[in-house]
């Protein structure tokens, strides 16, 4: 193999783009808890922005843990299955940017793009209404979440969701979602 990944190039890319946190691997709780704590302590001078970043991270991470098409199975006595994915937090002068990436099945692509488009067409009042409507639906059998993560992300960020889907093969695509949080964010 000659085309080895160059760790130094990675490092320089991250430095140039002001990447604060980058994680790739299984989205298991022990790791998520540590990343959460890191986010909270890092931005403790601006509690509202810090909480927005933390809340959005948790919803993105749960999406990966529950829905990533790339699964890991841990343990023998008590088997835990979790999704694999990538999370990145970076900053520019005006924004913090959160990005998540994971594999999805091609048949799930239209639904997820639909959801994101719906969210992006709404203003804050429309998003609050949609969140309430979704929360009022009955619990979904076999689902752990409330299915309102993306709506909540848009409410907290007060910025549109950017979505990128890259087909890999006939079964899978790579799904990237990113969102900005303004450094001077104020809820309306």
């Amino acid at each position: 193999m000659t085309n080895k990944i160059n760790i130094f190039d990675y490092y320089m890319d991250f430095e140039e783009n002001n990447v604060i946190i980058y994680y790739k691997g299984p989205f298991i709780e022990t790791i998520l808890a540590k990343i959460s704590e890191d986010i909270k302590s890092r931005f403790d001078t601006d509690p509202l922005t810090s909480k927005k970043i933390f809340s959005i991270f948790i919803e993105l991470a749960q999406n990966i843990a529950h829905h990533s098409a790339e699964r890991n199975v841990f343990g023998e006595a008590r088997i835990k299955i979790s999704g694999n994915g990538t999370f990145q937090l970076s900053e520019s002068d005006e924004y913090f940017t959160l990005v998540s990436g994971n594999l999805i099945r091609n048949e799930d692509v239209p639904e997820i793009i639909d959801k994101c488009n719906t969210v992006n067409e709404l203003d804050i009042e429309g998003l609050r209404k949609l969140k309430r409507d979704l929360r009022n639906l009955p619990r979904r059998e076999g689902h752990k979440g409330a299915n309102i993560g993306l709506v909540d992300i848009a409410i907290k960020a007060q910025n549109p969701l950017r979505v990128e889907v890259t087909p890999i093969n006939e079964d899978f695509s790579y799904f990237i979602i990113s969102v900005d949080v303004s450094k001077t964010s104020k809820a309306e």
């Binding site: 509202l48 909480k51 927005k52 809340s55 609050r128 929360r135 907290k156 809820a187 309306e188």
Partner: peptide
């Protein structure tokens, strides 16, 4: 007091 998001959330929960 700084948590405007929580205030909004509680208002919406109260409405529902």
């Amino acid at each position: 007091e700084w948590d405007d998001d929580m205030k909004m959330e509680v208002e919406d929960l109260g409405l529902d």
